[in-house]
Design a protein around this nucleic acid. Structure first.
Lengths: 232, 232
DNA sequence: TGGTCATTAATGTGATCACAATTCAAAGGC
DNA sequence: GCCTTTGAATTGTGATCACATTAATGACCA
């Protein structure tokens, strides 16, 4: 059954109010986010259907949607797999994140009210707590929530789906990389961002967001280190 | 059969080497691009299947993929329709285009060689010819090819799918708008872009691309004009 | 005549099946 | 021993069907 490597994905709680396709989609999406599907590993419809105990139909639709979002890749052979990362692709994804997210932050700034800022502080504390206990997974997850909270303040925002697509493409590799170096000092860019919001300073906010992204991918600073992680 | 308004979509040439799902996808995608599916119009699986003379299955997959790309919208009722445009959303889409595409152009500049530049000149001439004959559809289509030619010069580029998503979301409305004002003087930003490429000037290229996008959506300069088009 | 409700039609979802293409593995030949 | 080839098994694709949900139509009543 296990074609190459055995896979273990965490099953989400099944809600009857939601369609099976949506459940399969969010389950597989989370599996990609958590790096539970190794890059290059072939993801077949029937295998996933058996694993999730559903018919192949919802899996087909979920895979197509994930492929459209860049989380998965449909090869010419019509096979689906988690995309492999390259050093250049990684760099491009990070630069795209910076361009898109700093823009999204600037567009959202006028809409961030005190309540949302308070929510951001709460998340920031959760991140600090998770960092203290070395819970890298929670750090990554809540950090995403922190960023999302900024961008979605803009009620007319259209970039969140694009940003999520970039996150999906980066996640499988970030997961691997985080396991190799979860200990690195990080200037608290979140406080810089929240200060900029308090001052309603768009330039400072965009710089803080950009710096936060760059810090989070800092292991890419030395190409040889990145190359080493890619071969792992 | 026609639930609200009758629809007429241009059928693409069917290639046996390609799957039915892919053919349905590109056909529906082109229909969205050409504004043949009115915003707000419900797009049902069975209707499309009958229209394209295929089984509902490929239509289901194509619709889900288009929805993931933002070309279509799945409502809570699980119904699919072309998203409606609002003035704020339009503005956000244009600003996102500028942020993403100017970034993509800057990242692609080092990879644009003489051959590609020559292709750009050819496309630019085609655009001028189409503008002379008032063929707005060809202008829009070749203009997209022109932009695509810039961004895809970067072999490691990851932003093209995101940009295409923005194009898909803007297209239905641009189509309507172009019909109302296809006559407006436009400074030739394409030459500015090609000059910047010749000089290998990334800042000038990004500015030219941004200006070209802004010019192409210039009817949004006055909010009342935009509002008028939206109500049409 | 306008609004409410019940009936009917239509739609999305999910399952199962058939078929062609692809992949994999074992057997054969150099 | 290594490569090619041939067989079977697996896979993606597409079609058809059943069912629950939703939208639409008509009748009924105030």
């Amino acid at each position: 059954m296990d074609k190459h490597s055995p896979i273990q994905i965490t099953l989400e709680q099944r809600d009857d109010a939601v369609t099976i396709t949506q459940w399969v989609y969010s389950t597989l999406r989370q599996a990609v986010m958590l790096g539970q599907l190794p890059p290059g590993r072939a993801v077949t419809i029937r295998e996933m259907a058996a694993l999730l105990d559903v018919s192949p139909m919802p899996v087909r639709e979920a895979l197509r949607q994930l492929a459209a979002e860049g989380a998965l890749e449909i090869q010419g052979n019509r096979r689906v797999m988690v995309p492999r990362m390259t050093a250049m692709k990684f760099s491009e994804l990070v630069e795209a994140r910076i361009a898109l997210e700093s823009h999204a932050a600037g567009q959202a700034l006028p809409y961030i009210d005190a309540q949302r800022l308070a929510q951001m502080r709460t998340l920031d504390e959760q991140i600090d707590a998770a960092e203290a206990t070395g819970d890298a997974e929670t750090v990554m997850r809540v950090n995403q929530d922190f960023h999302r909270l900024i961008y979605t303040a803009n009620p007319h925002q259209v970039t969140m789906p694009l940003i999520e697509s970039l996150w999906l493409q980066l996640a499988p590799f970030m997961r691997v990389a985080a396991a190799y170096l979860d200990e690195y000092y990080q200037i608290d860019r979140h406080h810089e961002a929240m200060d900029a919001i308090t001052r309603q300073d768009p330039v400072a906010l965009k710089l803080a967001v950009a710096a936060d992204i760059r810090d989070g991918c800092a292991f890419a600073s030395s190409p040889e280190t990145l190359q080493q992680l890619l071969s792992a």
